[in-house]
């Protein structure tokens, strides 16, 4: 069993570390710094932290203004608010002029389980993918969070970074290179390729164990970089398989499944695991919701078997 590490905490520490070295980095939050973990900047580099209060639209446009003075602003809120509440500001103030603003959406999917549908972003990736000039990244673990923070600082342009609030298994190594746009092979296999991101990558690894008992071998690929997405690399990683399964903690509309099927087309049969065009609800735990909405290793196994039958 892989070691668990909290992604949002890893994120906050990674941003602080980067900010200590790079004076251009500033952070903004909309009264959620204790949850998004921008509080590491707030507590350690207070001059470079801007509390914008419960006013996400202003926060996002202020970040645009700060970027126009040469800063690298990281604007934080829950995924559901930064994308939803400030959509027009993201589009008009940041994406159209390709400004160097990093939008950090925390507590995505069902990870804020108790708070219910209003707090559970299930369509944020679809929205951000549709915006021209936007880069969309969903790190799979704490290691990739640290790598992604470095990578998006080096990349000049708007980025949406989707961070889970949960502890997740560490699946990647610091030594392995993270490149924006490149899908990463996590585990080799020959029958079916499973393209997953976020928590669904570890679900796919569990599905792999379950399928091995039935002599089925699946290849697990982590697609943390949803946009841009290297189409040739996606095709290469599908070589020789009889089918593809995608798995994401997001609506089936507009997310990873769509990104992969846009690339693969009709050449290989595809099945998708995701949220079936409906909102979430409250539950005692993240796991309760994942199970209720069919985001499980069993669901991946079922799709794999469908493709092989």
């Amino acid at each position: 069993m892989a070691r668990l590490e909290c992604l949002r905490n890893a994120y906050g520490m990674a941003l602080l570390e980067a900010a200590k070295k790079n004076p251009r980095i500033v952070a903004l939050d909309a009264d959620l710094s204790g949850s998004t973990m921008s509080r590491y900047i707030k507590n350690n580099l207070p001059d470079r932290f801007f509390e914008m209060g419960i006013a996400e639209q202003n926060m996002v446009s202020v970040a645009a203004g700060l970027s126009l003075t040469g800063k690298i602003p990281f604007a934080h809120s829950f995924s559901v608010f930064i994308v939803g509440r400030a959509y027009d500001q993201i589009r008009q103030s940041i994406a159209v002029p390709k400004l160097n603003v990093k939008l950090v959406g925390s507590s995505y999917g069902f990870s804020d389980s108790a708070d219910g549908a209003t707090h559970q972003a299930i369509e944020d990736v679809a929205i951000m993918r549709a915006v021209p000039n936007m880069t969309v990244i969903v790190p799979v673990d704490a290691v990739e969070v640290r790598q992604a923070v470095k990578a998006i600082i080096e990349y000049e342009g708007p980025v949406y970074l989707r961070i889970s609030r949960s502890e997740m298994p560490v699946l990647t190594n610091e030594e392995d290179e993270f490149v924006i746009g490149k899908p990463r092979l996590i585990s080799e296999g020959k029958d079916i390729a499973v393209y997953a991101n976020g928590l669904m990558v570890s679900m796919a690894l569990k599905a792999k164990e379950m399928l091995e008992k039935k002599n089925v071998s699946i290849r697990v690929i982590n697609v943390s970089s949803l946009k841009p997405l290297d189409a040739e690399a996606v095709r290469q990683l599908a070589r020789g398989v009889k089918g593809i399964v995608t798995a994401e903690e997001h609506s089936l509309i507009g997310g990873l499944g769509c990104a992969i099927s846009d690339i693969i087309g009709d050449s290989i049969p595809i099945r998708k695991v995701g949220i079936a065009d409906r909102f979430g609800q409250s539950a005692p735990s993240h796991e309760d919701l994942l199970e209720h909405y069919g985001l499980t290793p069993e669901a991946i196994v079922e799709k794999v078997q469908e493709l092989l039958s």
Binding site: F50, Q57, S61, T69
Partner: peptide
């Protein structure tokens, strides 16, 4: 808001 960001950036620098 954009102008405020520019103003805050100016103060910071």
């Amino acid at each position: 808001s954009i102008g405020l960001g520019m103003a805050l950036g100016g103060k910071l620098d």
